[in-house]
Simulated assay, not measured.
Amino acid sequence: MSKSPRKFVWYELLTTAPAAAESFYHNVIGWSAQDSGVPGVAYTILHADATPIGGLMALPEAALKMGARPGWIGYVGVEDVDAEAEAFTKAGGVIHKAPADIPGVGRFAVVGDPQGAALTLFKAASDAEPAPVPRGAPGHIGWRELHAIDREAAFAFYADRFGWTKGDAMDMGPMGVYQLFKAGGDEAIGGMMTKLEAMPVPFWLYYFNVAGIDAAAKAVEAAGGQILNGPHEVPGGDFILQGLDPQGAMFALVGPRG
């Protein structure tokens, strides 16, 4: 088990139309964008106010030919990318992209858990910690949600690999149990559930904070996105929606009514 709970540290969109995707998320969430400045790499940094929260890049042609589709992927901070990637495979997972360096930024590997949900393992070149962000701050990530083939088996895997612990569990009736999880601290940072049969593969879904869910829902549709579910209220009083951006990447929003 990891010595301390591992946390999500970055979020990345791989898309077929970077400029259009940048415009969509600016209109819906308010992110600003800036080129990464990494030589030879077309990579855009997304900011909530002045804070970088994630990145955006074109989905590689080789990945498209192998059937990959636009989507978001989360980065989890680890102490040793190579060792953690190897541990994923020993526990039944896979390595999609072998460990590699990003000059001046850090080392990463793209992996899949034993049920097929993808994540990126990351070790930053700098040990600097980001400043804490108030809960619900617009533009930041408010929730992380795993839609697994087997929720209990998925939680056991991540508890062992990342040191995550269980929070409350909510009975959602025919949809099963929704298990909250923590990465240190008292507050849950996400939830896990057994995916609906209609969903073809397991995946991680990320919820971005907005100042008002109703205004954001209108912005999604005005910018060419599609709302799949919501807005509806969740425990705690916030409202959520799930949708597709114009390129087909699934995303979710969370915030108060308004």
Rank of each mutant, 00 (worst) to 15 (best):
K166E: 14
D35M: 10
P134C: 04
G190I: 08
V234C: 05
G184H: 08
L241E: 08
A148C: 00
E79C: 02
P174V: 02
P103A: 13
P202A: 09
D186L: 10
F88V: 03
G136T: 09
G104Q: 10
Y206K: 00
D171V: 06
Q247L: 09
Q115T: 03
W10K: 04
A48T: 07
E22H: 11
G191V: 03
K195I: 02
D82V: 13
G116T: 05
P235F: 10
A216Y: 13
A48Y: 04
A124G: 15
D101H: 09
I213H: 11
F157T: 00
A159T: 04
A125Y: 03
G184Y: 12
I240M: 13
D101R: 14
L241V: 04
H232S: 12
A249D: 12
G40H: 05
A85L: 06
R69Y: 01
G184L: 04
G255E: 07
G74P: 06
P138C: 08
P256L: 01
V133E: 05
G173A: 14
L146I: 02
P174F: 10
T44V: 15
S36F: 06
E129C: 04
A124R: 14
Y158R: 02
M66W: 01
M175E: 15
A21K: 05
D171M: 10
G237I: 03
G230M: 11
A118M: 13
V177R: 14
N209D: 14
F157C: 02
H96Y: 11
K195V: 04
A62V: 12
G104I: 07
E233T: 12
G106C: 03
D238M: 15
V38G: 00
E233H: 02
Q242L: 07
F203Y: 15
K195Q: 13
G184F: 10
T120C: 11
W204D: 08
R151N: 01
F155D: 05
I102M: 15
I102E: 05
G77K: 13
V210S: 11
E145I: 01
D171L: 11
L241C: 07
A153G: 12
G74F: 02
A215S: 15
G116N: 08
S2V: 12
K65L: 13
E187I: 03
H26A: 14
